[in-house]
Design a protein around this nucleic acid. Structure first.
Length: 486
DNA sequence: TGCCTCTTAAT
DNA sequence: TTAAGAGGC
């Protein structure tokens, strides 16, 4: 029986896994490997926590089926070549990443392997459609969501979800460099992750439990409740999706089946509202694949001339630590730090405050998110930040500046989200919970709040910083107009 | 999935 | 005094 290396990356699942299935279909003996190569694919601290536990879960599933998962470290091409030699594998299969530089890396790898007489093959497992399969009539990539979404709805996923696997042949050989999980050093040293287990359970099994619970309890109300951060109205599947514990194809099929089976009015509309969000993820990956420079520079090139501030170090730190003095913003940043996740409505608000009211380059916010989110995903993150900063595809025009107090009153009317994450403000009446700086002194002292002692006053005036942002935007437009003339 | 300001018209 | 709509940023 010939052997095939199955190179796991962001596809940490056994069901609907094309690389694993092709080996089994061809009667090849699968040798599952994972290569930790932070130099090539950097990983934030919170996602590293997730990865550790997801690898553990995948390995346990593989062992339960009679196989194993071998953990390697270092340059992926080198590690895989050695593993192929050690195990006398004749083939290498993997599921593709569409992140910048990965296609070139995969081509180099394929060349090297075929020089040694080894067969290589890669598959799309993370997206509904390969990014090269979707384009406008003229062949160019989409830059606007709605036509992209219409095309995606018409085409649907590229395939039906693949089945899982039964008992696997035991690994009779193993790569010599295989390491124990803990030696990859993926867990934070300082105990920052102490609360993460209360909020999350990485792994394929719990990804499905999460999806089923969402379908049973929340999807029917998704359109109304997805914007209320105090509720669990969203699917919370993002980290499971990022690590490929569940695939977009699986979600697409399962949600459509739910819509067919659920008789209640609105089920079809609810399913479509949710799949539309899955399509935003698809759109973000489509954009980063076709415009790889947008990981750290604006898609709209006029924004290269945007007059960001330079002396923002203190404000950036206050934002990161949830000490801006604007409760809804601080609640979001503290939720992020404590749980590795933030509700999407609040992500938009904190991004707007950073890039517009504080005039801090969006890349600084993006970097913080990449380090602290368990669902940190280069495509979604770059897209989301550029959307918020007004410089991305289909972005909010720059002059659409959120007022976080107005937004908080609309989406956290009773203040329960703020009270959950900023307990200092717990006793403040609803009238002032979103703007404690306007509360009369007796109200503050009754609630035990001492501004600038146990809760800060706002680091910017919402009104004047809004005007400052609009002025900066106008300056950029003048500059670029001037630049075009020259 | 914007906010602000102004206008108009109903009270 | 307030609600609703329109237009500009």
């Amino acid at each position: 029986m010939s052997r095939a290396l199955i190179w796991f990356q962001h596809d940490l699942r056994l069901e609907d896994n094309p690389a694993l299935q092709v080996a089994l279909k061809r009667g090849q003996h699968p040798i599952p490997v994972y290569v930790h190569d932070p130099a090539e694919t950097p990983i934030g601290a919170a996602s590293a926590w997730w990865l550790h536990h997801s690898l553990d879960a995948l390995r346990q599933r593989l062992r339960a089926l009679g196989s194993d998962l071998f953990l390697l470290e270092g340059d992926s091409a080198v590690a895989l070549q050695r593993a192929a030699q050690d195990t006398a594998a004749e083939a290498l299969y993997w599921n593709r990443s569409y992140a910048p530089g990965m296609r070139e890396r995969d081509q180099r790898l394929s060349r090297k392997f075929s020089q040694n007489g080894l067969h290589t093959e890669s598959f799309n497992a993370s997206l509904l459609r390969d990014p090269m399969q979707i384009s406008k009539f003229d062949g160019s990539p989409y830059r606007v969501f709605t036509p992209f979404w219409k095309t995606l709805q018409k085409l649907g996923p590229a395939r039906d979800p693949l089945a899982g696997c039964g008992r696997l042949p035991p690994p009779d050989v193993k790569p010599a460099a295989a390491q124990p999980l803990r030696s990859l050093r993926l867990l934070p040293a300082c105990g920052w992750d102490s609360e993460f287990h209360q909020h999350w359970e990485p792994g394929e099994t719990s990804a499905w439990r999460q999806l089923e619970a969402f379908l049973d309890n929340h999807l029917i109300d998704y359109a109304e409740e997805r914007d209320l951060p105090a509720l669990m109205g969203t699917s919370r599947l993002s980290p499971h999706l990022h690590f490929g514990e569940i695939s977009a194809v699986q979600i697409w099929h399962r949600v459509n089946r739910w819509a067919q089976q659920d008789r209640s009015p609105g089920a079809v509309a609810a399913a479509e509202a949710f799949l539309r969000e899955v399509a935003w993820r698809e759109f973000a990956h489509h954009l980063l694949f076709h415009f790889p420079h947008t990981a750290d520079s604006p898609l709209d090139s006029r924004y290269r001339a945007f007059p960001w501030r330079h002396d923002y170090a203190n404000d950036l730190r206050a934002w990161q630590q949830g000490n801006t003095g604007i409760p809804i913003v601080d609640a979001g940043m503290r939720q992020l730090w404590a749980s590795g996740w933030m509700h999407n409505r609040i992500r938009m608000l904190v991004a707007s405050i950073l890039s517009k009211n504080l005039l801090i380059p969006w890349q600084q916010g993006a970097a913080w998110f990449l380090d602290t989110l368990v669902d940190a995903d280069l495509a979604n993150n770059s897209f989301g930040w550029q959307w918020s900063a007004g410089c991305g595809a289909d972005a909010a025009p720059f002059f659409r500046i959120f007022n976080p107090v107005t937004q908080a009153k609309r989406f956290d009317a009773d203040g329960s989200y703020v009270r959950r994450w900023v307990p200092q403000l717990r006793k403040l009446p609803n009238k002032w919970i979103h703007q404690p700086w306007l509360a009369p002194a007796p109200e503050l002292s009754n609630a035990g709040i001492y501004l600038d002692t146990n809760y800060p006053s706002p680091i910017v005036s919402l009104d004047s910083s809004r005007k400052r942002a609009l002025a900066a935007w106008k300056r950029m437009k003048q500059q670029t107009r001037h630049g075009e003339e020259v």
